[in-house]
Amino acid sequence: MKKARITCGVDIGARSIDIILFDGRKIIDSIVINTGAKPRERALSAYQNLLVKNGIRKNKLLKTVSTGYGRNHFTDADEAISEIACHAAGVAYYFPDAELVIDIGGQDSKVIGMLPGGKVVDFGMNDRCAAGTGRFIEMVSDILDIKIEDISKMSFRKVSGCEINSMCAVFAESEIVGLLQNDVPVEKLLKGVFVSVAKRVVSLMGKSFSSREIIFTGGVAMINGVAEALEQETESRITVPSNPQITGALGAAILAGKR
């Protein structure tokens, strides 16, 4: 048997832990679990289980790279790399010519400008505020008492959204409650929320970012309405990879093979 070049990427995010085994060309296996209260322990046992399941001993792995908020606490990793670099590398795997990535996760959103091949040249990230992140959409779905899965596949292309002006997630919440009391239809409201998230993210882009095609990743990329709103705000084509949640872990595994 040829010497294996199997690497592992572990992305410990605020909402989920994603782990990928990669053989240098394709994904061998992957797992996505909730982060929970003890991320370090959960990540470690998921990592070990994944190795066992695939019959790979740890010392046969070329390298393990961790990324995400918990990256520095995952002691089994050989190196920790920022999620910015990992996302870029993960996206470049599917889209080698991509120049611009928008990633909206549970807790933060980022815009990454890169060269073909995945080298990061510039990036923008949201500040402390939750507006413009998945958390904000979750809050809204709680208020409306609608499950995210139920709105994810709906199209809002024909709906004109209502204006949401608050710059802060908490104030936006009260603004939405007010709009509901004024009998604003739910679709208009959701569209308004998606557009406000999109606007937020676009404001991170600055002048230096522009591209005809934007790759949209992160958990929020699974919500159709947000992709539509981004298309409208950026006037670019928005492409969502088939599994937009795991690009960070995939990038970590890819970079593990390169360093």
Binding site: Y69, N72, I81, S82, E83, I84, A85, D108, V120, V121, D122, F123, M125, D127, R128
Partner: peptide
């Protein structure tokens, strides 16, 4: 040169977020 603007205050609450940004800049 690569450039990063960091907006923060004296509290330690955003340390982890800042680390992501700063390490990404250092990687670039």
């Amino acid at each position: 040169l690569p450039f990063l603007k960091v907006e923060t205050d004296y509290s330690p609450s955003d340390r982890e977020q800042l680390k992501v940004r700063i390490s990404a800049l250092l990687e670039i």
